[in-house]
Design a protein around this nucleic acid. Structure first.
Length: 542
RNA sequence: GCCCUUGUAGUUCAAUGGAUAGAACAAAUCCCUCCUAAGGAUUAGAUGUAGGUUCGAUUCCUACCAAGGGUACCA
């Protein structure tokens, strides 16, 4: 039980003993250190209910707070009605000891212990290389998965793609057109075809492998395209440090009959009907303005139907948590899928849908519309090649998924040297260097140290940052917003760099040195854990 | 038209309804006989507009303006 939980309980108890019914008591570290270490607005919230002035109520509440843990100083009351708690040094020394005792447990909640989670992300159809835009989702999904793992979930990272629809046919037709061009035949390039240079490369490879006599619409065109492009996608993800355990595709659900099964169940529940030669889903039942086409006039389902089959499959595989990560273009479609699953009797409360906004690519001061078909994209591979995995990952993860990110290609390379990720890594490397330096002086951090030798404001600032880590990393589990982890590491690194300039670790005073070695050792493990969560290297040397 | 997301410093982004709105880059000025200056210190600089709710609003509500996405037989 954390100190804030204890204080919350005490405050709630105090409120009840005054005859009040308190809401969830909220304690948070105030921005201004003059207001103590943790602060609550409970008197302000309860003033109306108590029919009292908040300051008077605060005094009454404080009078009822008994007994406080001995690591907490007597609380202070400040206008307009906050109660501020200050923690004793012994509390922070305990935090330090806790980290040193269990460096890999600090900040874990085990809330997911014994549970499984599935995170579906990237899921780009194999029609072209991954773009910078996909990079955001790749990193977001990977770190969300890591956060779940950190808190005890057994996580499956999954990639789902459509391999049965119009896009893949168009891809095959584009390859075939380039193939026939190579043979000198006059062909028409398909309207809306894929225009990228990589299509010509695939056509050349088809020619080299299968010769010049492939019949019209030979399956080789598609197969070769899919295989080649998928290899490229997987290699790019690998470069970014993203690994999916499972690749699922739409075709499977046709073959297994799941699509037909969904259809007949929807029919049995009177949720579909025929009109104009198409099959419609009654999405108006779910509060939409219009019904939705499930099967086109051509007899081919839209992607929604296999999506439904795929999601039901994920339910049937028994995951406790199912996370779907989509770009903003899917915002209108996932409610249909969820509504259908609900209608078919599944508990959609297990599903967490995370929508991220798109990355706007800026070149020469102007926004570039990216399109795989028109081949005016910048590939993710190019980006990772040029900037490196850590810079690219950090760039995408340091911002909230709802921000409409601007990515300026002209600045990317300049900025990459100034990427804040180096600030974090440098803190880690500096500590590694201190430890090495200490060893050279015959000073090894052992379990023996006297925490009371830590007294300066820089040391306490660091200890307080360490103290904040668990609540921040737990908040990341609730919100599945990775940027709060990045922010917590930034604050920790800032506190460390400040400490570094003000406090020398390796000194003639062996006892002081040992205490500071203990402190930086703790900081180092938290930084390492945090960087690992983000999938970023924690180097010992830079 | 309607729906979703977003408008914060010159720029790119932060800020569970809290107290003095943070950081980075860009600009200006300092600090390496000292464990790595990829660092530290200092200066200047912002909540789109108009209302509302609240003890308190960047945060919640309404309208307007602007950007991105969606608006159903592309995914």
């Amino acid at each position: 039980m954390t100190i804030t939980d204890q204080l919350s309980d005490l405050l709630a108890g105090a409120a009840r003993s005054l005859g009040l019914t308190p809401p969830a008591v909220h304690l948070s570290p105030p921005k201004n250190p003059a207001f103590g270490d943790y602060s609550t607005n409970l008197p302000l919230i309860l003033a109306r209910q108590a029919k009292k002035n908040p300051l008077d109520l605060a005094r009454d509440l404080v009078d009822q707070l008994d007994p406080l843990p001995d690591t907490v100083a007597p609380p202070e009351i400040t206008p307009p009605g906050f109660i501020n708690f200050r923690l004793q040094p012994t509390y922070y020394y305990q935090v330090l000891q806790e980290i040193l005792d269990h460096p890999d447990q600090y900040g874990r909640t085990h809330r997911g212990a014994g549970q499984t989670a599935n995170v579906e992300f990237v899921s780009a159809n194999p029609t072209g290389p991954l773009t910078v835009g996909h990079g955001r989702q790749a990193v977001l999904g990977d770190v969300v998965a890591s956060i779940l793992e950190w808190h005890g979930y057994e996580v499956t990272r999954e990639y789902y793609y459509n391999d049965a629809g119009r896009q893949m046919r168009l891809l095959a037709a584009s390859v075939e057109a380039r193939y026939r061009e190579l043979l000198g035949e006059t062909t028409e390039f398909p309207e809306d075809g894929y225009q990228g240079e990589y299509i010509r490369d695939i056509a050349r490879s088809v020619l080299a492998t299968y010769g010049n006599a492939l019949p019209r619409e030979a399956p080789e065109f598609r197969r070769e395209a899919e295989t080649t492009i998928f290899q490229d996608i997987r290699a790019t993800l690998e470069q970014l440090g993203v690994r999916h355990q499972i690749f699922s595709n739409e075709q499977t659900y046709y073959e297994r009959g799941d699509i037909d099964r969904i259809l007949s169940e929807l029919k049995a529940r009177d949720l579909i009907y025929e009109k104009d030669g198409a099959t419609w889903l009654k999405t108006t039942r779910f509060g939409k303005e219009q019904d939705t086409v499930l099967i086109k006039q051509t007899g081919e389902p839209t992607y929604r139907l296999p999506d439904m089959a795929y999601h039901r499959d994920k339910f049937q595989r028994g995951f406790d948590v199912i996370v779907d990560i989509f770009g903003a273009d899917h915002i209108a479609t996932y409610p249909d899928v969820l509504a259908v699953l609900e209608a078919l009797g599944m508990d959609t409360g297990r599903v967490r849908v995370l929508i991220h906004q798109f990355v706007t690519l800026v070149r020469g001061g102007e926004a570039v519309k990216m399109s795989t078909r028109k081949a005016n994209f910048v590939t993710l591979r190019e980006l990772v090649d040029r900037l490196g995995k850590d810079v690219v990952r950090y760039f995408f993860i340091m911002r909230g998924m709802n921000s409409h990110l601007n990515f300026d290609l002209d600045l990317a390379e300049d900025q990459s040297e100034k990427n804040p990720v180096f600030y974090l890594q440098y803190a880690h490397a500096r500590i590694a260097n201190i430890l090495e330096h200490a060893r050279a002086f015959g000073l090894e951090w052992t379990r023996r140290y006297d925490p009371k030798r830590l007294t300066t404001s820089e040391e306490f600032h660091l200890l307080k940052e360490l103290d904040h880590i668990p609540r921040t990393w737990e908040a990341a589990l609730d919100s599945l917003e990775p940027q709060v982890i990045a922010q917590s590491l930034q604050s920790l690194a800032t506190a460390f760099h400040k400490f570094y300039t003000e406090c020398r670790v390796v000194t003639d005073d062996q006892e002081l040195s040992r205490a500071r070695l203990a402190l930086v050792t703790a900081v180092k493990s938290v930084l390492r854990n945090g960087l690992e969560l983000l999938g970023i290297a924690a180097p010992d040397r830079m």
